Simulated assay, not measured.
Amino acid sequence: MSEIIWPEGYVPGFTDNYCSNEVITAGLTAEDIWPFLNTPSYWPTYYRNCADICLNESEGPELENGSSFSFTTFGFPVNAQVVEHVSPILGQAVRLAWHGWSGEEGTTTRLDVHHAWLIEDLSGGRVRILTQETQNGVPAQELAKAVPNPMINGHQEWLDGLVQAARRYRDQRLKA
């Protein structure tokens, strides 16, 4: 199976916080999942921890490499830029990653993250969805101490909602 590609400064184990969530489910493909992840305006329809999505006026509605966008999650207003974007191609893992930041640089409110997604079709009609995030900054240090871990729980909710949204859409297409 494929793995996340980490940029310098964001390798797990060398950051202030890290979380990893994965789902493997049957009956869906990377192609089924992709539109619901690659179109940020869909996120709030299946993930309640996401709001105030705004893509740069000249971009969207789908993400592309270099796209800039902002949203609110975990109580943080986040600005982000897509740094990796590989849409579904047969036999290749789908990849989406962004650098996100919140707070003023050089202050204790600053939070920098690398949030990466990997989607790949597996044998037996299964699909694997992996999301991992590393974080740096004082807010990341605080999140790392929280029990239960809000990042693990929130990202699991995002994955579960993503799968449910893709299933609902697939089922509607099959009924039509």
Score class of each variant (00 low, 15 high):
residue 112 D to S: 11
residue 83 V to P: 01
residue 143 L to W: 10
residue 116 A to H: 04
residue 87 S to W: 00
residue 135 Q to T: 01
residue 137 G to D: 14
residue 84 E to S: 09
residue 117 W to I: 06
residue 97 A to N: 09
residue 105 E to Y: 10
residue 123 S to Y: 13
residue 89 I to S: 13
residue 144 A to N: 12
residue 88 P to A: 04
residue 96 L to E: 02
residue 125 G to Q: 03
residue 121 D to T: 08
residue 122 L to H: 08
residue 138 V to K: 02
residue 78 V to G: 03
residue 124 G to Y: 13
residue 143 L to M: 14
residue 99 H to P: 04
residue 95 R to P: 08
residue 114 H to N: 08
residue 135 Q to H: 04
residue 91 G to T: 08
residue 86 V to G: 06
residue 88 P to S: 03
residue 114 H to Q: 03
residue 135 Q to S: 15
residue 146 A to H: 04
residue 105 E to C: 10
residue 108 T to Q: 11
residue 117 W to R: 04
residue 99 H to C: 15
residue 102 S to L: 04
residue 124 G to Q: 15
residue 106 G to D: 11
residue 120 E to T: 15
residue 145 K to D: 15
residue 138 V to Y: 06
residue 98 W to S: 11
residue 134 T to N: 02
residue 86 V to C: 12
residue 85 H to A: 12
residue 134 T to H: 00
residue 121 D to G: 06
residue 81 Q to A: 04
residue 114 H to L: 05
residue 116 A to L: 06
residue 96 L to A: 02
residue 94 V to S: 05
residue 78 V to A: 14
residue 91 G to N: 06
residue 143 L to T: 09
residue 91 G to A: 12
residue 112 D to N: 11
residue 129 I to F: 02
residue 135 Q to P: 00
residue 94 V to R: 05
residue 123 S to T: 15
residue 128 R to V: 08
residue 112 D to I: 07
residue 142 E to P: 02
residue 118 L to N: 06
residue 123 S to I: 14
residue 115 H to K: 12
residue 122 L to N: 13
residue 146 A to M: 11
residue 94 V to K: 06
residue 98 W to Y: 11
residue 108 T to C: 08
residue 146 A to S: 07
residue 78 V to H: 07
residue 106 G to H: 04
residue 75 G to C: 07
residue 146 A to L: 08
residue 138 V to M: 08
residue 80 A to V: 00
residue 119 I to T: 02
residue 87 S to P: 00
residue 125 G to K: 01
residue 81 Q to E: 08
residue 79 N to V: 09
residue 145 K to W: 06
residue 130 L to E: 05
residue 85 H to L: 12
residue 114 H to Y: 13
residue 144 A to P: 01
residue 93 A to F: 00
residue 93 A to M: 01
residue 109 T to I: 05
residue 134 T to L: 00
residue 96 L to N: 01
residue 121 D to K: 07
residue 108 T to Y: 11
residue 75 G to Y: 07
residue 102 S to N: 04
residue 101 W to S: 03
residue 135 Q to L: 09
residue 88 P to L: 03
residue 101 W to R: 09
residue 99 H to L: 10
residue 147 V to F: 14
residue 80 A to K: 01
residue 93 A to W: 00
residue 86 V to D: 10
residue 88 P to K: 07
residue 98 W to Q: 10
residue 140 A to R: 06
residue 98 W to H: 13
residue 136 N to A: 08
residue 110 R to F: 14
residue 107 T to W: 01
residue 135 Q to K: 03
residue 112 D to G: 10
residue 110 R to S: 06
residue 81 Q to N: 03
residue 114 H to F: 14
residue 122 L to I: 10
residue 112 D to T: 14
residue 137 G to Y: 13
residue 87 S to E: 01
residue 124 G to W: 05
